[in-house]
């Protein structure tokens, strides 16, 4: 049941990326190209993606947290509430450079696996390698914050 549910949620997420235009790197790069604003060639669509996503998630999370526990799990698991640190900023900066070079972030790279031909598969393979490398390095060097796990007392 849990596995089927997660498959369907992945599908919904992927359909959202496709409908939003996020799955098209050209659209992402045209959004990131702020210097195109004066010429009227800036594609502002991605602001709307973020607005729609954050609005629904902000409201929906509140409703979900009204429950004592998730429907198919023992407890909610959220990232530990640590402060921003050098590692976070370094990682985000490197991620942004890659995103700006190709126009792909992780979700769209997976959505493009069947549709983007060899270039998309090359990006995907390199991305997976980069992730595996970061996990190895993090396991060796970083004491990670335990997640915050909770369920409401009934």
């Amino acid at each position: 049941m849990s596995i089927l549910v997660q498959f369907v949620i992945g599908l919904v997420f992927g359909l959202g990326l496709i409908l939003a235009g996020m799955a098209n790197p050209a659209k992402v790069l045209n959004f990131l190209d702020l210097a195109a604003i004066p010429a009227g060639r800036w594609d502002a669509s991605l602001i709307f993606v973020m607005a729609g996503g954050v609005a629904v998630a902000m409201l929906g999370y509140r409703l979900a947290f009204l429950r004592e526990r998730p429907l198919l799990a023992e407890r909610f698991s959220l990232p530990g509430a640590s402060r921003p640190d050098a590692r976070l900023v370094t990682g985000a900066a490197l991620f942004g450079i890659g995103w700006g070079l190709a126009g792909f972030c992780p979700g769209p790279a997976l959505v493009a696996a069947l549709t983007g031909g060899l270039p998309a598969l090359v990006f995907l393979a390199a991305m997976l390698a980069g992730m595996a490398l970061a996990r190895r390095l993090a396991a060796a060097t970083v004491v990670s914050m335990p997640p915050v796990e909770f369920r409401r007392e009934p």
Partner: peptide, 28 residues
């Protein structure tokens, strides 16, 4: 998807996206 980047750029970009998103604990 409309992909403008060349294959070598895609390799570098993929490594950066993969490494950076995990190192920084998250992506978009």
């Amino acid at each position: 998807p409309q992909i403008a980047a060349t294959i070598p750029v895609l390799v570098v970009a993929g490594l950066l996206v993969g490494f950076g998103s995990v190192w920084g604990n998250g992506c978009t």
